[in-house]
């Protein structure tokens, strides 16, 4: 069974992901990316607050957080690229499954932000 099976589960996971990436980039000495992750956190919290009325109870299938595990030990440039790649993939996978347009757009935008770092 998918562990990311509701709107809230996906958005909460995304917020936690960005929060971990903020700390990771800080540790990697990359304050610019840390700030970008922090900004995405704030944006995703707003999306979770504001867009939930648009969703239905329709179960979301096929998304499991185990598929998006990050290696946060490796702070090398390659490690950072790999982390961005996984984050980008997460957003690419989840955005089409959300049936609230504004939320979908925000997730796609987060995915693009990460993709640009790859």
């Amino acid at each position: 069974m998918s562990s990311l099976n509701t709107f809230g589960a996906i958005l909460t996971y995304a917020i936690a992901l960005e929060s971990r990436l903020r700390d990771y980039y800080t540790a990697a000495g990359n304050p610019e990316r840390a700030a970008a992750a922090e900004s995405r956190c704030t944006k995703l919290e707003r999306v979770r607050r504001q867009n939930v009325v648009e969703i239905t109870l329709e179960p979301i299938e096929g998304l499991d957080e185990a598929n998006y595990a990050l290696n946060l030990e490796d702070t090398s440039p390659e490690g950072q690229r790999a982390a961005a790649q996984i984050a980008a993939r997460f957003y690419q996978d989840c955005a089409p499954k959300i049936n609230a347009k504004e939320a979908q757009r925000a997730l796609e935008r987060c995915g693009r932000d990460h993709q640009e770092q790859v």
Partner: peptide, 18 residues
């Protein structure tokens, strides 16, 4: 099919569907 797959649980868990 759909109703059988609903995850029933404590509402505070994000993946609870009912």
């Amino acid at each position: 099919k759909r109703a059988s797959g609903l995850r029933v649980g404590y509402g505070l868990a994000e993946n609870t569907q009912m």
